[in-house]
Design a binder for these strands. Sequence first.
DNA 1: TGTGGATAAGATAACGTTGTCATATCGGAA
DNA 2: TTCCGATATGACAACGTTATCTTATCCACA
Lengths: 334, 334
Amino acid sequence: MTRATIKDVSRVAGVSIKTVSRVLNKERYVSDDMRQKVEEAVARLNYHPSLAARTLAGRRSFQIGLIHDNPSPYYIFNMQAGVGQRCREADFRMIVQPCDINSPGLVDDIGALIDQAQLDGIIMTPPVTDVGTALAELFRRKIPVVRVQPGTDLTATSAVYIDNVQAADDMTAYLISLGHRRIGLVTGHANYFASGQRLTGYRQALQRAGIGFDAALVHPGQFDFQSGTAAAEALLALPEPPTAIFASSDEMAAGVLAAAHRKGISVPGQLSVAGFDDTDLAQVVWPSLTTIRQPIRDLGYAAADLLLEFGETIERRQLPHELIVRGSTAGPRA
Amino acid sequence: MTRATIKDVSRVAGVSIKTVSRVLNKERYVSDDMRQKVEEAVARLNYHPSLAARTLAGRRSFQIGLIHDNPSPYYIFNMQAGVGQRCREADFRMIVQPCDINSPGLVDDIGALIDQAQLDGIIMTPPVTDVGTALAELFRRKIPVVRVQPGTDLTATSAVYIDNVQAADDMTAYLISLGHRRIGLVTGHANYFASGQRLTGYRQALQRAGIGFDAALVHPGQFDFQSGTAAAEALLALPEPPTAIFASSDEMAAGVLAAAHRKGISVPGQLSVAGFDDTDLAQVVWPSLTTIRQPIRDLGYAAADLLLEFGETIERRQLPHELIVRGSTAGPRA
DNA sequence: TGTGGATAAGATAACGTTGTCATATCGGAA
DNA sequence: TTCCGATATGACAACGTTATCTTATCCACA
């Protein structure tokens, strides 16, 4: 017994092939009578149309690509979950393509993917979002693109994002409201525009509170644990060390926690620590992290939604972030 | 300008369509002369064959499926990385399909996936590996299957795995070698056969060392942080509490750490803690975890390799685990 | 009563590959 | 020399859908 084809369905239903196709594609001009006959036959034969044939014959492939170069399992997992869910709802398939933004073959790889799979659209996550050559290639092919949290050419494609400036501002303001005046900031990887945006939000909140900006309190990081530890060690060795450290990612915040533990500095007693992202990590370290929740899964869902609903039409959607207060922050010298 | 087709290539190279196809598929009986002409034309036109057309005409789709129902981002991310890498090497594509083993539609979903995408093979990870109805459906369709760490019907399909019994034995023996006699065990989720295997390894090591098995020291968990915390609280409240706790996952070990921190119990001074998996988490908590490294990425790579190299032929491959000693373990009452 | 637009259904030609079969050439053994 | 298997290439059908075009009704309206 081999797979059922549309021909089998049409025979069983007693209608033409084209009518079956019409029902499958929810086209207009099909009588309820026919529709029902076809649906019964489809169910009876447990028929599933061949994606290959549909792609070849039609101009759609029912597939979208998710391109990323992101080392964070948590980020990618949730992004995939969101995109994947929206795809399932529309009976689309998601093709995940990791890549390397420093590879010279990047543009060719993306081109090959689109050619081979005849993708109907592309979703990109940072930092791939801001690779000019890749973007240019996509424009050349006139393929619908949605970028997640893009940093450049903001109006060139559809996009979904959160307000990173406001989020960092919120967190900084929260720390200030606890009584902190010397707040360290560990910035993110320079490849990510979000890093700069979070710095902006930090400065903005300080200024509003009338606290002078001290460059010594800002230490570069790369979003990972190691750089969080290193940054914390540098900041805590200052003549006038901070009473709170705001790390631009939960991983770095975990690094700060580890550094504090090692030095016997109690958190939040002697030092408050805040993260960003609200990854699983935030609730698994001790003490659990005060952080900014970034709705990664929702961003993925929204990205796929824009692609499926609007296609080439450029659309933008901003999603809300949320300040999550947990055990790693408290007032200074408590 | 539209995509180049095989027809364009054949025209530019001055050969027949079939010859181009032969070169593309590395078939025999093609002269070097022809091969070179075709390759030049392919490069010049930047030609990429349509997967849809190849799938429709041939009997292969150049796609394999990865089916999972696993809540761990780390596990899935690494599994995908391994499978994906092997796929890229063979110019195959990986289709990732999350699923729900408790859903009544599970079998239908898998069937639909295979029908629609005409997959050349399937890789499954626990706990989907042991869902009898799903396995039966795959057998019915005679599709090559590789299971990662299967628990049942071990010889029914190809498989890749580590020796969970030995791994748990290794860890338990290590803790005993440090001088521990009362070692708590937090077991994993009952859906996973690995959970039982790790318990077996634990008992095995105890017995070899002449330490009596105490059921009170074994507490059920579900692989997650919460259950680790709960188990630790229960174990530490025993009249004669353990001096070491071996959790069957790093997440649960992190939960044990948190419980210890909360109670003011120092690790590893008053309590040793060990995990399992060596996820990113192990190095991000404080103190960093002594654990068993499970080569998840390599397992994925090997699984794809078996699928691509052996197809329907059943093959098995065991990969090595490794005991990783970090800061969370030491001798008792140090 | 005739006309035309909306509705409904089918026949047939694509889509871009691979499979199958046919054909031609070459080198070595009988 | 003759024949045969190995090598090399091409013509053409087939894969399972959708697109395009055609045909047939039906109903409202002039």
